[in-house]
Simulated scan of single mutants.
Amino acid sequence: MFVRPAEPTDEKLLWAMLYEASYARENGIDSPDHLRGTPKLAHYVEGWGAAGDLGVVGGFDGVPLGAAWLRLFGPDDPAYGYVDADTPELAIGVAPEGRGTGLGTALMSALHDTAREKYDAISLSVRLENPARRLYQRLGYVDVPGSGQVNLAGTASVTMVLRLR
């Protein structure tokens, strides 16, 4: 397994991992390229490498199979797990063939180590039925009170936060 810092040249991989993380396929979006037309999702990746962006990429045998990254959002363009303008939001995606291998945990741990130097906390949004929610809880993320929401498809999600310092 390898984990390395994400670079601006990893933007195509981040789009692919956002596609995995956002249940886009299940929602009828047929490719990562179509996420660009969905502003609430596109801002997680569009222009990757801006000030404040942090991320890691990982996989096996030199093949990237996952990424975890942080972006800051403002109150005028909040993301799904927005807490405040000083708390970056986490996005993480692992390709199906990398799931259950420990890659997600390794990506999260590496990203937390890097983020701790720069940020006090990290937030994320997760569907209540997503198995990754257990990983987030194990790593110390807690639900933000009152953050539960149900989208138009009837799927419930919650914002979680991890205090780094």
Rank of each mutant, 00 (worst) to 15 (best):
L35T: 03
F73M: 01
L54A: 04
Y119G: 00
A106V: 02
G49E: 03
R99E: 15
L90H: 03
V161N: 09
G58E: 02
M17N: 14
L65G: 08
S147G: 11
V94A: 07
P131W: 09
E20N: 05
V94K: 00
R133I: 06
G49A: 01
V158L: 10
G49F: 06
R165F: 14
V144K: 12
L70D: 09
V56F: 12
V45F: 05
F60G: 01
R127V: 13
L72A: 09
A21R: 00
Y141V: 06
A91P: 14
P78F: 12
V94F: 02
S147W: 10
I122S: 05
P5Q: 01
L139S: 07
L124S: 01
D33N: 11
G146F: 14
T105M: 15
G93F: 04
V3T: 02
A91I: 04
L54T: 11
F2I: 04
D10N: 08
A110K: 01
D33A: 05
P88H: 13
T87N: 06
S147M: 13
N130A: 04
F2H: 07
A95Y: 00
L162I: 00
E11R: 07
F73S: 14
D10P: 08
E46A: 11
P64S: 08
E46N: 06
A132F: 03
L18P: 03
A24V: 05
E26L: 13
H34K: 11
P32F: 00
Y141W: 15
R133W: 13
V158S: 09
D30R: 08
K40A: 11
Y82A: 12
D77T: 10
P96C: 05
G49C: 01
L139Q: 15
G47I: 04
T38S: 00
Q149D: 12
T114D: 06
S31A: 12
V161L: 13
L72D: 02
L111P: 11
G28T: 00
T101E: 08
P96W: 14
L107D: 10
E129L: 14
E20K: 06
E11Y: 04
N151M: 11
R36Q: 03
G37Y: 09
W69G: 08
Y82T: 13
Y44E: 13
P39S: 12
T9W: 05
A153I: 10
D30P: 00
Y141H: 06
L90I: 04
T38A: 07
G154A: 09
A156W: 12
A110G: 07
T87I: 15
L152R: 15
M1C: 03
